[in-house]
Structures are given as structure tokens and as C-alpha cells.
Write a protein that binds this DNA or RNA. Structure first.
Lengths: 201, 201
DNA sequence: TAGCGAGCCTAACAACCGTTAGCAAATTTG
DNA sequence: CAAATTTGCTAACGGTTGTTAGGCTCGCTA
């Protein structure tokens, strides 16, 4: 592995555990066993590392959802595939995922805006699947954007606990999440919510 | 309002938008229109602000869930109340909530450990409701901890977009979230589902 | 064997960090 | 009105920050 990749990987681990701002170049150098100044033989700046991690992960998420949507099928199936693809990327590199999810706001312009734009586009992909499902009667949901964001945020906590050696495989995690988010907690034979809390506008 | 509260509030806004580490005392002073050193007439240290915000919010979440659970009822009803209570706290102060959710890791010991312990206890409250619901057949879910964390992470993104002047009230948001998380996205053909949002009576 | 690039070093920079000391003005309280 | 408290100031501290300059030492290749 190239030295640059090694630096990137070590930095990613530190960024995840301490955050970008709280990680100094001297911390990073110490973790690598070299001097801080030596790092600049390989990278241009501290932020360059963050940029590379954020945009590489963005690429991975897009590639994954592209492949998932290409399979076609019903909205339910496409959503399941998109969830599985998202979980796959998330579990494949939890450290980079954590940085991608939490540290992007330390990007300077124009990268900050670029990143947000990519994120919006990605969310729109989920939204479109859900809208299709609403239109053809597969889903019943108050608001399509609301649903998409709830699903995504329900997926994005995985990186906090997932360990490759754990007992659930990424596919099983994806299956459980799909089940919960598509079917809800309620037992199928009794699916009504208490009436005292419902009103129809 | 006391000057100390004012400082805390301004700091909270900055911590939310830039993060704790990336917010300097000179940034905070600038936002307050005074000199950095002047802040120390009111607080002991930068971290004191973070501590106060984190533990005050923890208190609020516990008070809310205490009140919610005290109402009794089925597991479904208790979970709905707990969700509504959580959303209420979250929407009541989005800035402090964001700090509570994302900046706690910059707490030093023993506060860091204390905070994590409180968070675990809070999550266990949700888990217990869900376990009850599984045991008496209200819920069908693969794993109780998994379900609790998925629900909580599905709630905890609200602070990123909620504005008090928006068109959904906190109660409506809670209703929509309850609906999505309890019933899922899939259309149920065997029951009459409310077509839109919920409101508390 | 000469040369080259990769990799790392030391030294140092200017800027910024949280915080303290000591003092002055303003405001509140007796 | 006097005393006490609140609120803010300037100046400065010791330390840390990201980064640059310039040079040394290897292993590889021409």
C-alpha cells in the first residue's frame, strides 16, 4: 500500500474517534511514527485528506445505489436493494463512513457546497423510489421527503457499533432494517394505532 | 436573562454550526460583542459550557420520558408517548439538541463516561417499552436493541431541519414519525389507516 | 557507479489557542 | 449615598496549530 493511502487511513481513524478539528497533524504523525512535517511530503494539506475521504465515499455510495437501482423491480424491491447497498458501503468501511457522515462540515468552500449538493442528489434518489411506491400504491406515507430522511438516518447510525467480526452480516443487517422500516414494529394482524391519538384533517 | 445564560446560548449556536473544537473563545466573544477574556468573568472554562448544555439536555430528555411513561397504557401507546416526548425536547431547542447529540465526545473525564452512562440508561428505557411490546404480541421485531436504536436514530435527525415557523408542529412531526416507525412504509390492506398526519388531542 | 526520487528529518515561522492578572466602569443593592 | 457586585477592558502568558525550507539517507535504476 502506498504511503499516502496509509496516511489517509490512519487519519480517517483519528478523525472518526476525535473529530477533524481536534486531530492535530502532530497526533497523526505520532500515530504513524513519524514527524508532523514529514507528512507534507505526501499530502498538500490537512484538509486534502478530509476532501479525499468525503468525496471517495460519496462516489462509493453513488456506485452502490446505481447498481441497486439497475436491478429494477417494484418500488419495494428497489428500496430494499438501495437499503442493502447503502448498508454495504457503510459496513465496508465504518471509519470512512463516520468521517463522511460527520466531518464534512469542516470542508472549506467550494468543497463544502459541492458535498452538500452531492448529498442532496443522493437523498433525491431515495425520495424518487419512495414517490414511485406511493404513486402505485405500494407505500402509504405522509410525506415522501420525510420518509426518505427517516430511512436514511435510521441507516446511518450503523457505523457506531458495527464490527466485521460481529454476529450479523451486512446482508442480515440490511434485511432487518428493511423489515423494520418497511413493515414497522407493529404485528401485521393488528396494525391500528390507538384511535384517541388520530385525527383526519 | 442572565449574562451567563446568554453566553451559553450564543456558544450553543456556534457549537452547533461549527463544532466545539472549531469554535474558539475569540469566535464566541466576537459573537457576543465583547473580548474573549471577558467571558471568564462568567464561566470557568470553555468546556464548562459544553458540560452544562449536555447535562441539561440529558435532564430534559429524562423528565420528558418520565412523564410519557407515567401515562401508562399499552406498549404501543407508551412508545408513541415516548417518541412524542423525545421529539418535543428535540424541537424545543434544536441548537442545544445538536450539541447534545454530536459534541458530547469532547467532554473530558469523568464527564464523558457519565454522559455515556446516562445515554445508555435512556436508550434502555426505549428498549424496555419495546421488549414489553414484543412479549405481549404488540410488536414483531427481530431484535429489541436494534429496534430501539433504529427508532432513536430515526428521531435524532430532526434538529437538522426543524424550524419553529415551519408548517408541521412538533406534535404532528411526532405523529408522522410514530406512524412511519410503527407501521412502516408498506400499505396495509386489512385495516383502515389514517391517510395523513397524527395530532395529539 | 552515478543519479534520482521517495521518505523522513530538524528547525522554525507566524498565527492562534485557552486562560490569568489586574484594573476600571457601570449597575445593583444596602 | 455608599458599598458591593456585575461586567468588561488591556496586556500578556505558555503552549499548540498547520505549514514551509532545506537537507540527509536510503534503495532502485540507468
Amino acid at each position: 500500500m502506498s504511503r499516502k493511502k496509509q496516511i489517509e487511513q490512519t487519519a480517517t481513524a483519528l478523525f472518526k474517534s476525535k473529530g477533524f478539528s481536534a486531530t492535530s497533524m502532530r497526533d497523526l504523525a505520532n500515530a504513524l511514527g513519524i514527524e508532523a512535517a514529514s507528512i507534507y511530503s505526501h499530502i498538500k494539506s490537512k484538509e486534502e485528506i478530509l476532501q479525499r475521504v468525503c468525496f471517495r465515499m460519496a462516489d462509493e455510495f453513488f456506485e452502490a445505489i446505481d447498481a441497486a437501482e439497475a436491478t429494477g423491480g417494484t418500488a419495494t424491491e428497489r428500496l430494499q436493494h438501495a437499503i442493502a447497498a447503502h448498508v454495504q458501503v457503510l459496513t465496508n468501511n465504518t471509519e470512512a463512513s463516520a468521517v463522511f457522515l460527520h466531518e464534512w462540515r469542516h470542508l472549506s468552500e467550494p468543497f463544502h457546497s459541492q458535498f452538500l449538493s452531492l448529498r442532496d442528489t443522493y437523498e433525491a434518489r431515495f425520495r424518487r423510489i419512495i414517490r414511485t411506491g406511493i404513486e402505485n400504491g405500494e407505500f402509504t406515507v405522509p410525506d415522501e421527503k420525510f420518509a426518505a430522511l427517516t430511512i436514511l438516518s435510521g441507516l446511518n447510525w450503523i457505523h457506531t457499533w458495527y464490527k466485521p467480526e460481529g454476529k450479523m452480516t451486512p446482508a442480515e443487517i440490511a434485511g432487518n432494517l428493511s423489515l423494520m422500516l418497511l413493515m414497522g414494529l407493529k404485528t401485521k394482524t393488528d396494525t391500528t394505532l390507538p384511535k384517541s391519538h388520530l385525527t383526519t384533517p
